[in-house]
Design a protein around this nucleic acid. Structure first.
Lengths: 119, 119, 119, 119
DNA sequence: GTGGTCTAGACCACC
DNA sequence: GTGGTCTAGACCACG
């Protein structure tokens, strides 16, 4: 029963950036803002942004080139995989929530289909 | 750009109770723990629980009888409506998230169906 | 700006008895319950009831006969006057409230008439 | 037989404010005192005033803008409705009281008219 | 500065 | 025992 389950800020930023990548707002090879710039934009400590970039590099989503900056990877297959990962994760937690409330698979699928078709 | 999007505790508890109702763990007419009891269980101040119960009464989900306690409403139609409301809300925010990431309706539906059938 | 403007209990009881008289539930010459009886009925201290009866005697509404009890006065003209007094007081405070909220005399009369006729 | 019919302070304050609105002392869009200010003025705890403002927002009479303050709604039609509601409520309880004392409709109307014309 | 939430502890009316 | 109200004082996010 955990209240205050606020995610660490750096994870929130990573998620935001990943979504921008998946969405296509950030393309393969594109340059990310400098650490200081991004820190200013987000109103966050530069250390936090540094951690974000390091982590994204570890995930194979970004690459840093000394003296040049940090870039979205040009490995398109990695980006496709990221897209699938986020999709899968999102769907997984959605279904878990729905089932925890007792909705049947049929009800879930029909609910989603109806919501999407009725527009 | 909102970090720290922690929902107020009393809203979290309301959501938890509503889900238990939808799930069927809390049935129509069932007694809720007393304010002080629930406060102790949840590690929260009695005032916060009081607020939860007051709000749930306003939502037509609970009824309070002075000196007796707080009970889930016996209005089953209200409970059915609650179930639909929660379902709709959950589906709505799921789809919004997915579309914000650039997934197509077809991709969303197929993703959900695949995940549910593959078990 | 006085919060907690609770009227003393004995005044509340007097008002209640006067209303019963005006309404005709208590008639001229009728016997009131004994002090102890009334105290038990109302869940109040006998001293409080004593004060009620004393005050009502002072107002000329009740008379006490030693060894017999307390009775509503047989002076019917006093009872008619009481009726007029209560009516006047009730109307006075009603109109004061309405005017304090800025309602015009015309609006007040029409409002009352409409409410009474529409039944 | 309820003695001690003291209304909660927050309801008393709400009623006071509503009357000021109906009377025109508080106009549409006007700023209310800050929570702390009003608390000091009324000799009441800030939490109590907070409850007042929250409730008034729920009633559609006030609107709050974070960091700016609480304001009377600019929805004039809501304010007109409030005026009618208060009028109706006041008249209703007046008539109920009078009839409970056994006054006839004719007597009530004539009493009100006489009191208002004799000035 | 604003409103919003939370805790701690108290008193009340009702049953 | 129950829920309902109130105070005192604190911390937070927003502007």
């Amino acid at each position: 029963m955990s209240f205050n389950a606020t995610q660490p800020i750096y994870l929130q930023i990573i998620l935001r950036l990943c979504r921008q990548v998946v969405r296509g707002d950030l393309k393969a090879g594109e340059k990310l803002p400098s650490v200081r710039e991004m820190a200013a934009q987000s109103g966050v400590n530069p250390n936090t942004v540094q951690r974000v970039y390091t982590e994204m590099e570890r995930l194979g989503i970004a690459e840093t080139r000394r003296g040049l900056g940090t870039f979205i990877t040009e490995d398109e297959s990695r980006l496709r995989q990221l897209r699938e990962d986020l999709k899968s994760e999102q769907i997984g937690s959605f279904i878990a929530d729905m089932e925890e409330m007792g909705f049947s698979p049929r009800e879930i699928i029909e609910g989603v289909r109806h919501r999407l078709s009725g527009r």
